[in-house]
Amino acid sequence: MVYWISIILMGIGIYGLLTQKNLFKQLISLAIIDTAVNVFIIAAGYVEGGKAPIYTKALPSFLKGAFVDPLPQALVLTAIVIGVGVLALGAALLVRVKEKHKNLDVENMKGVGE
């Protein structure tokens, strides 16, 4: 089920990328695609009825269906940070683009030759 959500989110992200004129909105739709992928990764690691893979006093030992798959969570941690990094870079670039080309709308940006 969660797969469906992530895929639809991706579809929205792509739609955003295709139609948005403003560059910042395109960056946001890129972020949407990133989050969609992260959701997908988490969904790939879900075990029915599993709990968070942390050993505590209440849950000291390994049971067959007890824990959710920890590896995707580790991967998603990295993926999120990568998403943040890319977003930060994009934002910084857009500040400069706004300065240089006077506005962020794709159609009428000044100084963008062939």
Partner: peptide
């Protein structure tokens, strides 16, 4: 080819990737 595939707008790129 230049006009069609290497157009400056990112949405064109997304279009072509998909």
């Amino acid at each position: 080819v230049h006009g069609w595939f290497f157009r400056p707008s990112p949405s064109a790129y997304a279009f072509w990737t998909v």
